[in-house]
């Protein structure tokens, strides 16, 4: 085997799962024998008769991997495991992980190792990212976002810890407005500190988008029109409680949004469907009149009705926003495109 690369991050939801899968897919396209390994997962899903990590399931299908899913995802955090570990009733699962890893590596040129939420994850089991990189002898690629200060402190600390095991950092989800700042200040600074920037990937709201179907399932709401458009992808939430003039001004500025409003607010609903809106949630259980629903249908905007109040609806949608997993194929495809375009892939694999 040439190289095993751990893709980790210091914050959750940096886009690390998609980037892992993208790297593996790119290698596969090049005709390399590539493996995938998710030593420790935090999102258990039932696969066959066993609970494994969701990323591993997607990777197995997407990369057409022959390895047993139990090897691809040897440890996944369940309530039961958590309790046992806290009570000291089990020993570290590191052996299990090592064994699975060795089996995965057979006949592979490269193995991409997907990290958990962030590097420290799993420390209580003795299998944090830091532990695994050392014990499995991995090279690490760190995926980071910038915080509000436009700083990368955690990256520097990690570099100190991982030293040469860290290949470099991919800065992901960078807003176009701060791109110049990143290129002119952050990257030269990182270089000076011995951290190589492997790529800067611009923010792509479509990756964080969720479908109207997901929202509708999450809200337990009723679809009153636009059933054919539930695959519409929503990127932002807006609330329509203001007067229509202000609403229109605000609505025009936000693309691919969902608008939450009351059923009696025909004006808000019309303002929403005149602008880039992918769906409307009507709260309070009042169904808008037929004329308005006809307009929504005409424009391909699904309208769903719930008895809940606006705050509850926002809270529920927010809870799934930006935290979507990679199971939807359009996300992986887009991820591959972005990585190919913006990341120095050869450097990672050399």
């Amino acid at each position: 085997m040439k190289k095993a690369i751990y893709v980790g991050s210091l914050l959750p939801y940096t886009g690390k799962s998609i980037i892992s899968l993208a790297l593996a897919s790119i290698l596969k396209e090049k005709g390399e024998e590539v493996g995938y390994f998710k030593p420790y997962g935090k999102f258990p899903v039932l696969y066959g008769d066993t609970y494994v990590d969701q990323d591993a399931v997607v990777a197995k299908e997407r990369l057409d991997l022959k390895s047993d899913i139990k090897e691809l995802s040897p440890v996944v955090l369940t309530q039961d495991l958590k309790l046992k570990a806290l009570k000291g009733k089990i020993s570290s699962p590191i052996k299990k992980i090592k064994k699975a890893f060795n089996s995965i590596c057979v006949k592979k040129e490269y193995v991409i190792v997907g990290g958990a939420n962030f590097l420290a994850d799993g420390a209580f089991l003795g299998i944090s990212g830091y532990d695994l990189i050392r014990k499995l002898n991995l090279q690490a690629v760190i995926v980071e976002r910038l915080d509000a200060d436009l700083l990368i402190d955690p990256v520097l600390v990690t570099k100190e810890k991982l030293k040469d095991r860290m290949i470099g950092v991919i800065l992901n989800r960078i807003k176009p407005e701060v791109m110049d700042y990143v290129n002119e200040l952050i990257i030269p600074f990182l270089n000076k500190k011995g951290v190589e920037a492997l790529g800067v990937i611009p923010d792509d709201p479509s990756l964080a988008a969720i479908t109207m179907r997901e929202i509708n399932e999450n809200l337990n709401s009723k679809i009153v029109t636009g059933e054919d458009y539930l695959d519409n992808l929503v990127e932002k939430i807006m609330i329509g409680a203001m007067d229509v003039e202000s609403a229109l001004k605000l609505f025009r500025k936000v693309r691919n949004k969902i608008v939450i409003t009351g059923g009696h607010r025909s004006d808000i609903i019309l303002a929403a469907i005149e602008t880039s809106t992918k769906g409307i949630v009507v709260t309070g259980g009042v169904v808008p009149n037929d004329l308005i629903l006809a307009r929504a249908e005409e424009r391909g905007v699904p309208v769903i009705v719930t008895d809940d109040d606006t705050f509850t609806v926002v809270d529920r949608i927010e809870s799934i926003f930006g935290k979507t997993r990679i199971k939807e194929p359009h996300r992986v495809q887009r991820g591959i495109e972005l990585v190919k375009k913006n990341v120095n892939v050869n450097r990672i694999f050399e």
Binding site: V244, L248, S266, I292
Partner: peptide, 20 residues
């Protein structure tokens, strides 16, 4: 007025321009 505008949009199904 905003109440009137709301009634008008329910009646016609179109978004009327602002009164201004």
């Amino acid at each position: 007025t905003s109440a009137g505008a709301r009634a008008a949009s329910s009646h016609t199904g179109t978004l009327a321009g602002s009164d201004k």
